[in-house]
């Protein structure tokens, strides 16, 4: 039996002539936080909808907790799933508490959890107010609260921090860490890649409906020839010495700015660069190496068809 909580095998989805998702295969382990990134229209939301059984795939199979999402037995699995869609608009005429109670009823969750969750997402004071009067951030927090009803083992969060202010965003990530501690498996998408890179165990990059790459951040970095940037702060008057030594080692630096020499080189050249800097220690004040961010990796994969990276 597979140890994966979510398993996709050769999944495809076509809408007439348009291929929204093509040959997607993924295996997500229990307790893993998995990120899904891609341009708008890359197929992320469609893949989410397929995984939740909201639309049938035109090819392949999807299993969650060992149950096919298009089978009758999946109904029980749904009780263990929390879902926060992107830009969901809840019903204006219900209060926050009524909204949560409605979802709790449908999910078969304990109604007592509603107060607790409203408190957890900072909406206790607004619990009796109609959703009509909620700000965008408050609506998003209410959406998050409904996703957490029934203490789900699996969470699908589509752009969960959209519309949240910095404070709420930080609180959301604290909550995410708590859920990770409880062993909740999470799948999330976000356009804020900087936030995502620190929180996901693995991620997949989607491009034109295909999973272009999947792996850990380090694995994805290694799988593509990305450049890193070195900011070398030099002692006053030592810039020409450092520049000529680096040029001799094959690292032509840019013109020094504000007392710093800047080098852009391939990641695989990092050790050679450090080797070239070692004899110059007396002339250096500081060296900062900036590894390619998730954004760089994403843009690198988006720019060219990269080799597939294995987990």
């Amino acid at each position: 039996m597979s140890s994966s909580v979510i398993e996709l095998r050769g999944v495809g989805k076509r809408f007439g002539e348009v291929c929204a998702v093509e040959d997607a295969s993924l295996a997500i382990a229990r307790g893993e936080i998995f990120g899904l990134i891609g341009h708008n229209g890359a197929g992320k939301t469609t893949l989410f909808r397929l995984m939740l059984g909201l639309a049938p795939p035109t090819a392949g199979t999807i299993e969650i907790q060992g149950k096919r999402v298009d089978g009758a037995a999946f109904r029980e699995v749904r009780r263990q799933i929390g879902y926060l869609p992107e830009n969901v608009v809840l019903w204006d005429n219900l209060t926050g508490l009524e909204t949560l109670r409605f979802f709790a009823g449908l999910k078969g969750a304990d109604r007592a959890q509603c107060d607790e969750l409203l408190d957890r997402v900072g909406l206790r004071a607004a619990a009796q107010r109609k959703v009509h009067g909620y700000s965008k951030g408050m609506r998003q927090r209410l959406g998050l609260a409904q996703a957490l009803l029934g203490r789900p083992a699996l969470l699908f969060l589509d752009e969960p921090t959209a519309g949240l202010d910095p404070q709420s965003r930080r609180e959301f990530y604290v909550l995410l860490a708590e859920l990770r501690g409880r062993g909740v498996t999470m799948m999330l998408t976000s356009h804020v890649l900087a936030e995502m890179q620190e929180r996901v165990d693995r991620l997949a990059i989607m491009r034109n409906g295909r999973i272009a790459a999947v792996g850990t951040l380090a694995g994805l970095r290694d799988g593509i020839d990305l450049r890193l940037r070195a900011d070398i702060r030099v002692r006053p008057g030592a810039a020409p010495t450092v520049q000529s030594a680096l040029a001799a080692a094959g690292f032509p630096p840019a013109e020094p700015q504000d007392g710093a020499v800047r080098i852009v080189c391939l990641r695989r050249e990092k050790m050679a660069l450090l080797g070239a800097l070692a004899p110059l220690m007396a002339d250096l004040e500081d060296v900062q190496l900036r590894e390619p961010s998730l954004e760089d990796i994403f843009l690198g994969h988006a720019a060219s068809e990269p080799p597939r990276v294995q987990p």
Binding site: L54, R75, P85, N87, V88, L90, W91, L106, G108, G143
Partner: peptide
Amino acid sequence: RGSLDLLLSLPLT
């Protein structure tokens, strides 16, 4: 409104 997907993700046919 996007709430249809949310409702159908629940144990609701």
